[in-house]
Amino acid sequence: MRYSLLLFYPELTAEQLGPEGIAEGIRAFEDYARALDEAGVLQSAEVMQHSDATTTVHLVSGELVVQDGPFADTREQLGGTFIIDVADLDEAIAWAAKSPSATWGPVEVRPTATRYADGAWQGTPPVTV
């Protein structure tokens, strides 16, 4: 099963982190991505720019509204996504727990309903649980 691991955490500035903090973070994400890759479960990994780099786009009554900043202004922001392919939820939870960000903020684990690949949607539309 494919799962998205959505990493949420409070965003710290370079000053707040300090050079050592940054170096440590880079190393931790290196190790994490490599471990996922070597286990053969990693599909994609992206760490995003901070949420203040977000541009929010919305069509309101047919009119394009472009806004500076994220849609939801919360303390913890979505900072990265890892898509993994594993056997079940327990494996996905185990990988989520290993995320370097898990000590700073929550990791959401969400199964994929369907994805577009090889020219077609693979899967079924999402359902309400």
């Binding site: 799962y3 939820l89 199964p111 649980v129």
Partner: peptide
């Protein structure tokens, strides 16, 4: 449904 959709083993 949650067991099935979330992949609880």
């Amino acid at each position: 449904r949650r067991i099935r959709v979330t992949g609880i083993p």
